[in-house]
Amino acid sequence: MTPMGEQGMPVGETAAQLGLTVRTLHHWDEIGLASPAARSAAGYRLYTDDDLERLRRIVVYRELGLDLDAIRAVLDEPGGDVAEQLRVQRAQLARRIAQLQHLDEDLERMIAAQEHGILLSEDEQRATFGPGWDTSWPAEAREAYGGSRQWQQYAERAASRSADDWKAVTRTVAAFDEELGAAIDAGARPGDATADALVERHRAVFSQYFPITRQMQVHLGRMYAADPRFAAHYDAVRPGLAVWLRDAIEASARAHGIDPDTATWE
């Protein structure tokens, strides 16, 4: 027998014994799920042994994941199939476990992307990005930009990209290089309509990595011309292309009210 007064146990003691809150017991009483059988002379709830046994069963089923309506059906419906109720709950639990496993896999990929940038092996990187790809570049990029918002955005996109997705990005970039080369061949000059259109196209293409503003684009253009690796890439497409692209980006920035010399990375 549970230690209690002559009529029953007060609500506070009952809640403490079962690891519940008084508010929970009041709620269960209000909805008719577990109402105390007795009241004190002052009108306070008192829980009998039978009440406590019902409460213990409710706690067990609630910990198994049944909602209150399902618990009521298990406890109160004559001939209710408890095993079937539990099978339904188990099936729901299996679906939730599968969802959590997928979430865990997604989180693992997100962590790896934040730490490494590209979730491809070195061999996969070379196969995806071509023989000119340097597999040390992702680590260098993280070292330089790992704390930035742009790196976070880049990693969020990288986390969901497969080798085929990266190949599609690479094809888009390569096609843009050809557009730049064709513009040079056609005599386009920084500031003209063709160059301005290509500057817009550049921002769209490279925003596949992270969103690029016009001011950020100015910094990228200057990096293309100043960094020997980027300059070599663009000048291999057409001699002088790195400087041409920088100048085209700066001309477009001026047309949009941005002074390239004071542009900030934002």
Rank of each mutant, 00 (worst) to 15 (best):
M110E: 03
Q153N: 10
V74R: 07
T135C: 14
T24Q: 13
L20Y: 02
L220P: 03
W137D: 03
S148V: 11
A94Y: 09
D29S: 15
E108C: 09
L52W: 06
T194I: 12
A255W: 01
Q101K: 14
L245D: 02
E53G: 11
L18S: 01
L18Y: 04
L68P: 00
A236K: 04
T170R: 13
G32M: 11
R96C: 06
G130S: 05
E179W: 00
A225H: 05
E63C: 04
L119Y: 02
E115T: 06
A34P: 04
L93I: 15
M216T: 11
Q217P: 09
S162T: 12
E115I: 09
E108Q: 08
R54G: 07
R171T: 14
V243C: 11
Q217G: 07
G117N: 03
H256N: 13
L68D: 06
D81I: 07
D104I: 05
D227E: 10
G130D: 03
W133T: 13
E122R: 12
R39S: 15
R189H: 09
L75P: 04
P131Q: 05
S136H: 11
P10V: 13
F206T: 02
A232D: 06
Q208W: 01
A186E: 11
G79L: 07
L245W: 00
R109T: 02
V59Q: 02
Q114W: 05
Q99H: 15
A38E: 13
R222V: 08
E77P: 01
A168P: 00
Y224N: 00
Q152W: 04
T172V: 08
D259V: 11
R56K: 07
G240Q: 02
P36V: 12
L46W: 10
L68Y: 04
D177F: 10
I111E: 08
L33W: 02
I249W: 04
A236N: 11
L241T: 00
R229K: 04
G221N: 10
L107Y: 03
E30R: 15
D261W: 13
D49L: 08
G191D: 04
A175W: 10
G187M: 15
A73E: 15
D259K: 10
S160Y: 02
G187E: 12
G132F: 08
S136I: 07
Y145E: 09
A70Q: 15
Q217W: 03
L86V: 02
A232L: 06
M9C: 05
R23G: 06
L220C: 06
L18D: 01
Y145Q: 03
A155Q: 02
K167A: 09
D164F: 12
A91Q: 14
A41G: 14
H27F: 15
A186K: 13
V88D: 03
W28G: 01
